[in-house]
Design a binder for these strands. Structure first.
Length: 663
RNA sequence: GCCGAGAUAGCUCAGUCGGUAGAGCAGCUGAUUCGUAAUCAGCAGGUCGUGGGUUCAAGUCCCAUUCUCGGCUCCA
């Protein structure tokens, strides 16, 4: 279903010749978006055959986390008597527990007291975690006596809807919890674990906003104190890469409340990033036979009723604007005419209209329209976050109109385009998610176009293309767009959140709703398929990923300032200016001279703080010999070379979009 | 949207029990012309997010509001 995913469909390349592996420049792309702590990449393929010992350790850690969640619950109940429990599972880097807190809300000021209570429990003796299995009726009776309404609700569901005939309980000292386990045998096993409360947050019971709001306490937890410390340290370091922090420090964007939430202003440095990415994508698309188009930000809403988007999308759109106009009718009487407009939340219907703007032949297909389309979506205010979730966004959008026979090649070409882009950018910490429809989904017709045969066919086509592309992917039922299956590219942010960066969909439904057709060789009208694709997703989100990926230290081709020249004394400024003029005027290199009266040390520091990739030091020696002394960001070794040689190197590096300066 | 936390100079922050606002960096001015991550001095800069309220007195307390941040099924 149409969610807030960034882009719609991209289109395939004209010819999908195998692309040569992009030259590997520089180190092998350190994972861009390293997950902060437990960088557990999503397992796409079969989990590598882990040694039994490792599996045991993982299972034990799982039990330890789960058991400490009970200890946490116990501590909270001690501090806030009368509170009730929700779920308290182990998670990637620890565990959490949900509560309805009775009394004062829990804040992080309460953490020390909670941790102290947990530790007291762990040190005061050895208590077993006793498992007890009760038959359904007994279990329900027990739950009823526990004053745990949420546990009771879940117990009823397990028994009545899922047909379980027994439920299990775990008892630790006075604490009794309905829980599936498994748990440790005794609290002794928890003593050497390292844990630490991480945060407190609101969470709806069962994630549904119609349900009660609970208080969720998150904790980190690892097998040992050392592992915990290492994890927390890594997490803190990851926070330094946060795009919101770097975006401010490096003058990339600002969000000003007078402009509006979720509506970022792009500063000059950030605009360079956008421009360079656009240039890159335009080149790659051009080579694959895309045609560029442009469409307005505003549109009449009627279009969205025709496409069928309205029921799925209206809650994510800015309110509709009504224009009222008094016009004179043919009979001389005046009448009120109303036109309803909206800010477009997507580009697809507009591209479809371009397709429909003239009669199309099968000879025209595949036809690929691309645009950097500005769109507006009304995201929940609480969901907004830096550049990752915004209300105004620019999509690297394209739509490919093709026949059924062409889908395979076009989809492969789209995947090939992704591979190119990610290779150039050095992105590797992602996985592809193939989202299909779920015929059993209770929302059924409200969520998906009702055409089982088309679903089966289109899913088969996409799956086959993915397999042939050789890109690993994970299949997820029930996440498809309302009009067809999709392939999303999932990244993990520095804060550990998984987000969709790119999205590609096969659409078998909307073309019919807009009556799109082409004339076949048989002189009959035929319905095209549409592939929506957006390899770069939106500028906003993608640049947020890139900032975190590179930690703000962009490769030269992408860097807002590519070269900065520092003179040892202003006697050498003219020499520096000449070099800058040459770089800028003849080679379009973003070069500048630091004209401050600071000493060289300070200028070097400033350039380093701003993460300028290439710094040239100019002093007497350089001026005499016609050379420059090059310091590259993060590289200890500096070198002196002729100004011409440097120019040649940087120009080649930029042209090749190398991840480092070519040697 | 909902739960919680937060908002003080351009940035990062301090500000006690309520007594009329501070630092560092950045900026500006001057001096310094200097070879590899911070030269020195001076100046300027804040309606303490906004609006109400309590008080002799509010950055500090109360209410409302705006915005930001974290979180909102990794299920017993």
């Amino acid at each position: 279903m149409a969610r807030l995913a960034p882009g719609r469909g991209p289109r395939p390349a004209v010819s999908c010749r195998p692309r040569p592996p992009a030259p590997r420049r520089g180190p092998p792309a350190a994972a861009l978006l390293e997950a902060p702590v437990s960088a557990q990449d999503v397992q796409v393929d079969a989990p590598e055959a882990a040694a039994p010992a490792a599996l045991d350790a993982a299972a034990q850690l799982h039990r330890v986390r789960h058991s400490l969640a009970h200890v946490l619950a116990q501590a909270v109940l001690e501090l806030r008597p009368g509170s009730t429990l929700g779920f308290g599972p182990p998670i990637d880097d620890g565990f959490y527990y949900d509560f309805i807190i009775k009394g004062d809300p829990i804040t992080d000021a309460d953490f020390p007291a909670i941790e102290a209570a947990m530790k007291k429990f762990l040190t005061k003796g050895t208590l077993p975690f006793e498992r007890e299995e009760l038959a359904a009726a007994d279990a329900l009776a027990r739950i009823a006596g526990m004053n745990e309404p949420y546990k009771a609700e879940y117990a009823r569901e397990l028994i009545e809807k899922k047909g379980l005939d027994t439920l299990t309980f775990y008892k630790t000292g006075p604490f009794l919890d309905m829980c599936d386990g498994p748990h440790v045998e005794s609290s002794r096993e928890l003593r050497k674990a390292g844990f630490k409360l991480k945060s407190v947050a609101g969470a709806y019971w069962r994630g549904n906003s119609n349900n009660a709001m609970m208080t969720r306490l998150y904790a980190w937890c690892f097998a040992s104190k050392e592992e915990l410390d290492a994890h927390v340290t890594a997490w803190r370091e990851a926070q330094e890469r946060d795009h919101k922090k770097l975006g401010k420090e490096l003058d990339i964007f600002v969000i000003d409340e007078d402009i509006g939430k979720g509506l970022p202003l792009w500063l000059p440095n950030g605009t360079v990033l956008r421009d360079e990415l656009e240039k890159l994508a335009k080149e790659l698309e051009f080579k694959r036979g895309y045609h560029r188009v442009a469409t307005p930000h505003l549109t009449k809403v009627g279009l969205y009723y025709q496409t069928g988007h309205m029921p799925y999308y209206e809650s994510h759109m800015y309110p509709i604007m009504e224009l009222k106009e008094t016009v004179e009718g043919p009979d001389g009487k005046t009448q009120q005419v109303r036109e309803a407009y909206c800010l477009k939340p997507m580009n697809c219907p507009h591209h479809h209209k371009i397709f429909a703007s003239r009669k199309r032949s099968y000879r025209d297909l595949p036809l690929r329209f691309a645009e950097y389309g500005q769109c507006y979506r009304f995201e929940d205010s609480g969901a907004l976050s830096g550049l990752l979730r915004v209300r105004g966004m620019c999509m690297n959008d394209a739509h490919i109109y093709c026949t059924e026979d062409q889908i395979h090649a076009e989809f492969l070409s789209v995947m090939d385009l992704h591979r190119d882009l990610y290779d150039i950018l050095g992105l590797s910490n992602y996985y592809m998610r193939f989202s299909t429809w779920d015929p059993e989904d209770p929302k059924g017709a409200a969520k998906y176009v009702n055409d089982p045969e088309a679903w089966e066919k289109s899913q088969h086509l996409v799956r086959q293309a993915m397999i042939d592309s050789g890109l690993p992917f994970k299949e997820v039922k029930g996440e498809a767009a309302f009009y067809g299956p999709k392939i999303d590219v999932q990244f993990r942010t520095v804060t550990g959140r998984e987000e969709t960066a790119s999205t590609n969909q096969l659409d078998f439904a909307v073309p019919a709703r807009l009556g799109l057709e082409y004339t076949g060789a048989d002189n009959q009208g035929h319905r095209p398929y549409v592939i929506h694709r957006a390899p770069l997703g939106t500028h906003e989100r993608f640049i947020a990923f890139l900032i975190e990926h590179y930690g703000g230290a962009f490769p030269t081709w992408l860097a807002p300032v590519q070269v900065r020249l520092l003179t040892v004394s202003d006697r050498f400024d003219e020499y520096a200016h000449n070099i800058v003029n040459d770089l800028r005027q003849r080679h379009m290199i973003r070069a500048e001279v630091d004209l401050s009266s600071d000493r060289v040390q300070k200028k070097i520091r400033s350039a380093a703080v701003e993460k300028v990739p290439n710094v040239l030091i100019i002093g007497e020696k350089e001026v005499e010999n016609g050379t420059v002394t090059l310091r590259r960001y993060g590289v200890e070794q500096q070198e002196t070379l002729s100004a011409a040689a440097f120019t040649d190197r940087i120009v080649r590096s930029v042209q090749a979009r190398s991840r480092s300066l070519l040697d």
